[in-house]
């Protein structure tokens, strides 16, 4: 560690201590309230249910009656989900596909759109609105709209002149439906990513661009080497959002066919197993725990890496 950092750290510590001493007891009470209140809510409504879910994943329970009706079964739910539950592997595959399509296609497309719109081309406002439009609708509404477009007696099949018996099975064919759904999800995701990057680009200091132009850098080179790296805070958000959106995918699939015919995703599998009169709480909780770990893992690694570098 260099001397200068040591000095910086020391002064930082001193500064912090100094500030702390400046607080009156009233200030401290206000701060405690402002920090403690949300923390308490967060613990009660996020962490306790999450921990309860993890605990329930080790049990068999139909959700009726008290805790004394719970049978603890250890890791049985997890081993059976892996060995017996064919839908799990389908769901896992679909969530991974979702992540790959979002990460490799939808998000880069969003960046490209943002890049061009940021250049204030003719009709920028129109494009901006058009691409952002899908985000105004909730995913559930999006699902219903696209269901009417692609269902066997829907718009596309009608335009193709195919009646119900000869229609193209967009959602019924396990080889096709996930790609159709990913197309729909991307349609929405691209606009979201575009918006995030557009906001980021607007905040990039124009002098950076000028300096780079003066130095003779081409437009694309400037974007790659100057603009994009300066968008790091946006990149962090985008990566986290993309991972979460891909893993928590629920609405579209649920609306279209409740995860039947090879369209299953983890979130729908959790829902379908926990709800209903034949509730398999333990089984569903085990699926939810797997989903939770999947979401947590990559995000924690990414955030840790990023903030470590920033520090």
């Amino acid at each position: 560690m260099s001397n200068s950092t040591k000095v910086a750290e020391a002064t930082g510590r001193k500064a912090r201590r100094g500030r702390k001493n400046a607080f009156t007891s009233k200030d401290r009470a206000v701060i405690a309230g402002l920090v403690g209140g949300p923390t308490l809510l967060h613990i009660v409504f996020v962490w306790l249910p999450a921990i309860a879910t993890i605990l329930l994943s080790f049990c068999q329970w139909d959700g009726i009656g008290g805790i004394n009706n719970i049978t603890w079964v250890g890791f049985k739910n997890f081993t059976q989900i892996w060995t017996l539950y064919a839908d799990f592997k389908v769901a896992l595959r679909n969530n991974v596909l979702w992540l790959l399509v979002f990460g490799l296609i939808a998000t880069p497309l969003g960046v490209i759109l943002a890049y061009y719109i940021d250049k204030n081309l003719k009709g920028t406002k129109f494009y901006q609105t058009a691409f952002y439009m899908p985000l105004i609708l909730s995913l559930a509404v999006t699902g219903i709209v696209w269901d009417y477009i692609f269902r066997v007696n829907g718009l596309v099949n009608s335009l193709l002149g195919k009646d119900t018996t000869h229609a193209i099975a967009f959602f019924g064919d396990p080889h096709k439906n996930i790609w159709v759904v990913l197309g729909i999800a991307s349609w929405r995701h691209i606009g979201y990513m575009m918006l995030l990057y557009l906001a980021g680009m607007k905040s990039v200091d124009p002098s950076l661009r000028e300096a780079s132009a003066i130095d003779g850098a081409g437009e694309w080179y400037t974007f790659r080497k100057v603009i994009f790296p300066s968008l790091r805070p946006v990149n962090v958000i985008v990566v986290v959002v993309t991972i979460i959106e891909a893993l928590r995918a629920f609405d579209l699939v649920y609306i279209i066919n409740r995860g039947k015919n090879g369209l299953q995703v983890l979130a729908v599998a959790v829902y379908e197993n926990i709800l209903g009169e034949s509730a398999r709480i333990g089984w569903g909780a085990a699926l939810a725990t797997i989903l939770f770990l999947l979401c947590l893992g990559p995000i924690m690694v990414y955030l840790y890496q990023n903030f470590k570098r920033i520090d």
């Binding site: 066997v152 009646d163 119900t164 018996t165 099975a169 015919n261």
Partner: peptide, 21 residues
């Protein structure tokens, strides 16, 4: 009909109603 997994019961029943099935 080919698209069994794409039809709910109403859609299949409609085929009978419409004299297609």
């Amino acid at each position: 009909n080919k698209d069994v997994l794409d039809l709910d019961w109403q859609a299949a029943a409609t085929l009978v109603l419409q004299k297609k099935a």
